[in-house]
Simulated scan of single mutants.
Amino acid sequence: MSFAFHPRTIHPALRGLVRGLWHYDEQRDAPLRRREMPVAEAVLLFNLGPPIGVAWPDPAAETGFASAAGFLARPHPAPARSFMSGRQRGVQVMLTPLGAERLLRTPLSAVPAAFLSLPEALGRGGAGLGERLAETRGAAACLDLLEAELLQRLAGTAPPADPVAQAWRRIEASAGRIAIGALARDLGWSRQTLVTRFRARTGLTPKMAARLQRFRAVIAHLPEVPEQGWAGLAAELGYADQSHLIRDVRDFTGLTPGALLRRRLPDGLGFVE
């Protein structure tokens, strides 16, 4: 088994629009099905290796993606399922909802499907970009190519500074610990106005965005059972108590934190389905 992960530092012009950008190359001795964790960002993925399968948000409906194909998936508070035959290679972009809005030229709430193909997400050049990436050798060269494409599509204007953008940035910066009522007051809106306008732009309510940000922190702390126990971890990450943390993990994964931890792959590269 081998795994090479190459993250790219986010270009200054893409900050606030792109949360993560990386190239990966994984080789295993047998096929593998993973349970992929929910995220608050939109996922833009280019498959550059053998065919892969993804089931999301319906775990029973798997979609296959050949080499040079890929997709953009909306944020969704439910786990995805992925399948690899033994090897996979690709590049992945984690777009904030405001970054996805700029890329798609429309708010995420207006996207008609959970999955968009590359041509649907990127226009007529989407398939061609996938093909160029698949023909490119070397992680750095792939990332250079994709970064240049993102800069062309997303840069050139100032990052959004409207109240919804401010709300997103504050939820993200607080790792989901901010009180939504207080956030609305700071923005000069009622709570209902914030909820309505935030969901219209991002496809999520502010509360769901905050929950997903806290959940991200839980996953980051799951290499082993926390020394302080689940109650201590809950307090550290801004949950009301241990039951609150357990309820969120079960809502997002269908498993308790302990059961999820037992499904963690021995090499730490995700959770087995």
Rank of each mutant, 00 (worst) to 15 (best):
T157P: 03
A140L: 08
R169G: 14
L154V: 13
G156Y: 13
D144K: 03
L145N: 06
T157A: 13
P160G: 08
D162I: 09
A167G: 05
E147V: 04
L151E: 09
G156N: 08
A161H: 11
P160Q: 00
A148F: 11
L143Q: 02
L146P: 02
A158V: 12
L154Y: 11
D162E: 11
E149Q: 14
G156H: 12
D162G: 13
A158R: 10
Q152E: 15
P159F: 06
Q152C: 15
A158H: 03
V164F: 02
L143S: 05
I171N: 06
L143C: 10
I171K: 02
L151W: 01
A140P: 08
R153V: 15
D162N: 10
C142D: 03
P160F: 00
G156Q: 08
W168C: 14
P163L: 04
C142V: 02
A140T: 11
P163F: 05
A167K: 06
A158K: 09
A167T: 03
P160R: 14
D162Q: 07
G138M: 01
D144Y: 04
V164W: 06
A155C: 06
A140M: 03
Q166G: 04
I171S: 04
I171R: 08
G138S: 11
R153A: 15
L146S: 01
G156P: 06
P159R: 02
I171Q: 00
L143A: 06
A158M: 07
A148T: 15
R169K: 05
A140F: 02
A139D: 07
Q166Y: 00
L143Y: 01
R170V: 07
L150P: 01
W168K: 03
D144S: 13
L151H: 09
P159Y: 01
L145Y: 03
G138N: 06
P163G: 02
P159G: 02
D144P: 12
A139S: 12
C142F: 09
A140H: 05
G156S: 09
L143E: 03
V164G: 03
Q166S: 01
A155N: 07
A158L: 14
G156D: 05
R153P: 03
P159T: 02
G138F: 00
P160N: 07
P163D: 07
L146V: 08
